[in-house]
C-alpha cells in the first residue's frame, strides 16, 4: 500500500510540474522581452535569456509621465476600497441567499442570475448616462460604486455557504449571540478561505479594469495604472512589443507582491496549514 501511494504521488508531481511549466512559459517570454530592445524581439531568433540586456523599456514606461506614482496610488485606493465594500456586500447577500429563508428568495436569486447573462457591452452607455446624471463621471466613485457588488461573487459565496457546516451557528445562537453577532463574529471568520478567494478576485478585477476607467475618467491625475499605461502603449507606428511587455510586467508586479505577502492569509484552511 505504501508503494502504491508513492507511485500516485509521483504522477501527481509530474502533472503539477508540467502544468506549472505551461503556466510559466508565456510569462518567462514576456519578462524576457521586457528587457530586450525591440529589434531583437521581432527578429524571430530571440532567446529566453536576452542577448542584449536593457532597462530602456522600463525607463521609458516609468519616464513617460511624472504621474506614474500617482496612478499607482489611484489604483491602490480604488482597488482596496472597492474590495472591502465588495467583501461585505457580497458575503452578506450570499449568506442571505444560502442560509436564510424568506419570501421571494428564489425570485431574487434567479433575477440576479439572469442579470449576469447580459453582455456588458450594451450596458456601457446606459451606465455612462446613469453616472453622468448622478454627477459621478470623472470621479473615483464612478469606478467603485457600479462595481460595489459582483453578482458572480454573490453566487460564489452562496455556493460556499451551501456546503458550510450549519452546527457552528446553532451552537453560537444557543450561547446567546444575536444574529448579527453570529454572522460577523462566527460565520465571517470561518468563511475566511472563500472570502480571501473573493477578495483576491475582486482586487484583481479592480486593478486590471480598463473599460470603465477609459470611459469614465478624463483627468490624467485620476487615471488608474492600467489606463495610464495603456495611454502610452497605444502607438500608431506599430505594436511596440518592448514597451507593452514592460507595461504588462509593471502592472502585474504589484499584485504578485501583494499575493506573496497575503499568501499566508489566503486559503488558510486549518487542515492545509497544519500539515507540513
Amino acid at each position: 500500500m505504501h508503494k502504491h501511494t508513492s507511485i500516485g504521488k509521483i504522477i501527481l508531481y509530474v502533472v503539477m510540474t508540467i502544468y506549472a511549466l505551461l503556466t510559466l512559459y508565456p510569462f518567462l517570454w514576456a519578462i524576457s522581452a521586457s528587457f530586450e530592445p525591440l529589434k531583437e524581439i521581432v527578429s524571430g531568433n530571440m532567446s529566453l535569456w536576452p542577448k542584449q540586456f536593457t532597462f530602456a523599456n522600463y525607463q521609458y514606461m516609468m519616464g513617460t509621465s511624472a504621474q506614474f506614482p500617482r496612478w499607482f496610488m489611484n489604483s491602490v485606493f480604488v482597488s482596496t476600497v472597492g474590495t472591502v465594500i465588495n467583501i461585505f456586500l457580497n458575503t452578506m447577500a450570499g449568506y442571505a441567499l444560502a442560509r436564510l429563508s424568506f419570501p421571494g428568495r428564489q425570485r431574487i436569486y434567479y433575477g440576479m442570475l439572469s442579470l449576469m447573462m447580459i453582455p456588458t457591452q450594451v450596458l456601457l452607455i446606459p451606465n455612462y448616462l446613469i453616472l453622468m446624471n448622478l454627477g459621478m463621471l470623472d470621479s473615483y466613485s464612478s469606478l467603485i460604486l457600479p462595481s460595489a457588488i459582483n453578482i458572480g461573487n454573490i453566487f460564489m459565496m452562496r455556493q460556499f455557504f451551501l456546503s458550510f457546516p450549519k452546527d457552528v451557528e446553532e451552537a453560537a445562537e444557543i450561547d446567546g449571540l444575536g444574529r448579527i453577532q453570529v454572522f460577523f463574529r462566527i460565520v465571517f471568520p470561518l468563511a475566511r478561505p472563500s472570502i480571501a478567494t473573493q477578495a483576491i478576485f475582486t482586487f484583481m478585477g479592480f486593478w486590471n479594469n480598463f473599460m470603465q476607467p477609459m470611459l469614465y475618467i478624463t483627468t490624467p491625475s485620476k487615471y488608474t495604472l492600467t489606463l495610464g499605461l495603456q495611454s502610452f502603449t497605444n502607438q500608431q507606428a506599430g505594436v511596440r512589443w518592448d514597451h507593452s511587455m514592460a507595461a504588462s510586467v509593471i502592472s502585474i508586479l504589484p499584485i504578485v507582491i501583494l499575493y506573496i505577502i497575503f499568501n499566508k492569509y489566503f486559503l488558510q484552511g486549518v487542515r492545509m496549514d497544519n500539515e507540513k
Partner: peptide
C-alpha cells in the same frame, strides 16, 4: 489570473 486579458492576449 493576475494579468489583464489585454496583456495576456498580446503575450
Amino acid at each position: 489570473t493576475l494579468t489583464s486579458s489585454a496583456a495576456l492576449t498580446l503575450i
